[in-house]
Design a protein around this nucleic acid. Sequence first.
DNA 1: ATAGGCTGTGCATCCGAATGCACGAGGCCA
DNA 2: TGGCCTCGTGCATTCGGATGCACAGCCTAT
Lengths: 329, 329
Amino acid sequence: MRRPTSYDVARAAGVAQSTVSRCFRDDGGISGDTRARVHAVAAELGYTPNAVARSLILRRSNVVALIVTDFTLRTNPHVIDGISQALNAAGKRLLLMTVSGDNDVAGAVVGAMEYPIDGLITGALIGDENLARFLARGVPVVSLNRRVDRARVDCVATDHATAAGEVADLLYGAGLRDFLCMTGPVDSAVNAERVDGFEARMRERGGARVARCVSGAGYDEGRAAFAAYVARHGRPEAVFCANDQLAFGVMDACRHDLGWRIPEDVAVVGFDDLPEAARPAYRLTTVRQQFEEIGRAAIGLLVRRIAAPEAPARTVLLPGQLQRRASTL
Amino acid sequence: MRRPTSYDVARAAGVAQSTVSRCFRDDGGISGDTRARVHAVAAELGYTPNAVARSLILRRSNVVALIVTDFTLRTNPHVIDGISQALNAAGKRLLLMTVSGDNDVAGAVVGAMEYPIDGLITGALIGDENLARFLARGVPVVSLNRRVDRARVDCVATDHATAAGEVADLLYGAGLRDFLCMTGPVDSAVNAERVDGFEARMRERGGARVARCVSGAGYDEGRAAFAAYVARHGRPEAVFCANDQLAFGVMDACRHDLGWRIPEDVAVVGFDDLPEAARPAYRLTTVRQQFEEIGRAAIGLLVRRIAAPEAPARTVLLPGQLQRRASTL
DNA sequence: ATAGGCTGTGCATCCGAATGCACGAGGCCA
DNA sequence: TGGCCTCGTGCATTCGGATGCACAGCCTAT
């Protein structure tokens, strides 16, 4: 039951342990004859190189750590999928840490620090000093959807502001002037970029009024917050929601709580393009994010930085794709 | 930039490396005085124990590997969330491997075998001989939602058959006799248990007709397959779908492609209870699965088996909770 | 036949933490 | 004051694979 080691293989194959090691490292200097024999013996014994011993001597682990907040959020799985595919292709492994409270963050950081990880991808705010600790160890860091102004921290994100500007153009061009932004939580930098981008474009165009409504990030919060908002401030001409879940909540509030038609009474726009957005229940105009591509790009940045640790920080901005559907005119 | 080691801390604190090690292992035999000094020096140097060196000597890693297929499937993130929470609480880490093709499976298995993992949780079919390899190494294995008849392999699953039986009772009790099961993919053991459970109960009750329609697992496949089915075989009285996504597809096909009312013209039942099922667009009668609990239970089984490796295999069956909504009478 | 080059293998050491055993300091009792 | 015990610390070794260096064997050129 004890796992066989390279020494076991060496003994059985009549060679030295170093030869076994070289056979599995493919570093040349081994005759095809010897290699074949060693591999045969290894297969027979069920030998697998011990990644831990290898990591110890090499001081790298082929493991990339990913820190995300609650990834039952609908958008996360697609990003992780992209990351996972790219890591598979690169022969690296994924250590996944989810964090909700500050406690978790500390635990995740400690956990990640204990390994000689090849890199860290973070979709959560882990704090500046924690970031610094990874960088001090020479661990490449890639930030997802969040700009980090720090040397050697790369970033990949959807170009939220530009896409939100396109949304603004669409609504403004339809003659609408009275807007509400469902911002989601105040502390979300991503949502803020979208709403700010929308507002900025509206200011450029001029003559529009943009109100804000803060809420949680989910469907129920959006639905309730919107209903509460209109009870106090009346009906806007259009609602720009910082994500699709909020938009679904708003649409259901309009139709089922308030009896309004979409888009005749109020236009609604979301952000993300979740699968439901295209379905008959919603037909939501929204901005498609390239989730898998975000994940792949993150790994791309990581690999590049491993090769060139001191390269200047890069930010990959992926365009959002406006999807016009029946929730706007 | 080189990370400090226990030797560095020992030198700075004026003690031996073994003392530093003991301070961080909390294994007693260290005076409070020495411990405090060592921890202070360690904090100052930014020392963190090297998990790799520790794993090498201890022959265990505090890492649990999880193999899942495409986890953009809506149900997986919740299960993983439960797993992740439970692992955080247990001080263990999660190595996530996603597999789609057979290639990936081989890669994932090789990857997992290279680590002295504390356990393996698999929601994917990895093949009997691969399973055997882990067991031979003494790695505990927990199977998600799939019964594995093998000594020392634990299993946690929703009690699909019983829940599907309750669905059958509900529909039968409403006087319906002509049923269609949307089975999803043929090779899905989970879906098969649900449909078989439904059919078995119907046979017990007697006098009912149960047809099957095979399709992919997603919304679009369900919608298209259902439309194609009714074009050939006409309208059933009720449709039991192996998962909610299929049910949404069927509902939209009914309402938007066929012009049928739900539940007056046809009743629809799903399985999973995704958040949308409760929303006004669907109001779908379905079976709630306790996803987080599945994840937590999996870790519970793992921890128990680590403590008692030779214990008989256990299966935790979690009840599904029938949610009656407006898609049935 | 011998020198030089090249290829393939082995030896010894290293990575960083854990731990059995030995040993020293200090306290206690006779 | 000496013997004994306890507590805390250090020494040496171990985990399993990677690699610089040495060296043996063989081939080619002279």
